[in-house]
Amino acid sequence: MNFLEQYNYWIVILLMMSGFYIVIAHGNLIKKLMGLTVFQTSVFILYISISKVIGGTAPILDDQYTVYSNPLPHVLILTAIVVGVATTALGLALAVRIKEAYGTVEEDVIQEKDLQQEGSAE
C-alpha cells in the first residue's frame, strides 16, 4: 500500500470526523447544523475523489479529449448537495422555533427546561 495513494482519503476522513465531532459535542443548535454541513460536504469530497481519473478531464464531451473523470458520482453528489441544503433549511427553521419557545438554542438549557416542565406537570 502506497502512502501517497491514500493521502486524499485520509484527509477526507479527518474532515468528516471534525464535522461529526462538532455535531455531537457542541451544544449550540446552530453550530450543530454547521458541523452537519461540514460532515456532509466532506462525504461529498469522498465521492468526488472516487470519481477522479488521473489525467482525465471534466466529463463534457469534446473531440480533444479521450480520458474523462467518472460522471456518475458527480450526479449523485449534485443530488446530495440539494438534500443537504434542504435539511439545513429545515433544521434552521426548527432552531428558530425552538428559540421562540424556549428562549435559547443551547442544548443543556433546553433539556433543563424540559425537566422542570416535567417536574411541575406531576
Binding site: 460536504t41 468526488i48 473523470s69 458520482p73 449534485l78 439545513t88
Partner: peptide
C-alpha cells in the same frame, strides 16, 4: 480540481451562498 465542475458550481452556489445566507 477533481474535474467535477457541475458539482463545484452547485456547491459554491448552495454551500457558500444559500446556506450561509440562511444561517
Amino acid at each position: 480540481l477533481m474535474d467535477a465542475v457541475d458539482v463545484a458550481f452547485t456547491e459554491a452556489a448552495v454551500g457558500a451562498g444559500i446556506s450561509t445566507i440562511l444561517m
